[in-house]
């Protein structure tokens, strides 16, 4: 899917694993509805600049989530008086997020058991 860009960071880029960008979007919307720019800022800040979301991946991902009805979009005024499309997590999306989180947990545990076995 997307690729982590290294605009501000000299280190090697990390690639998003298949489908992870969608989960990150869902997670960012769990806190509050947000617009596309806000979502990308949230992911970047939360990952401490490890993930820089490429807009070329962000927008298609948002479209896919809309089509699956995991999120919905609505035009609203931002606090600083700008018209923006705010995305909101749907009930379906909430369920999907919970599922993805538990899957992720299992995935990480399995990976680390292999990569960093405790003797």
């Amino acid at each position: 899917m997307g690729r982590m860009s290294t605009v501000d960071d000299p280190r090697e880029s990390l690639e998003f694993l298949q489908g992870t960008l969608e989960v990150l979007i869902l997670r960012s919307l769990q806190i509050a509805p947000n617009h596309a720019y806000g979502i990308s800022q949230f992911i970047r800040q939360q990952s401490e600049n490890e993930f820089v979301v490429d807009n070329g991946s962000l927008y298609p991902a948002l479209q896919r989530l809309l089509q699956r009805e995991w999120i919905s979009g609505e035009w609203k005024m931002s606090p600083n008086g700008r018209r923006a499309r705010y995305y909101k997590l749907s009930a379906l999306g909430r369920k999907q997020l919970a599922k993805s989180q538990s899957e992720w947990r299992r995935f990480v545990q399995a990976m680390s058991r292999i990569l960093e076995p405790q003797q």
Binding site: H35, A36, Y59, R82, A84, R85
Partner: peptide, 12 residues
């Protein structure tokens, strides 16, 4: 919609 959204993105 998409175009408006990208404009807004630019502004933010």
């Amino acid at each position: 919609d998409l175009r408006d959204e990208i404009e807004a993105h630019l502004e933010f």
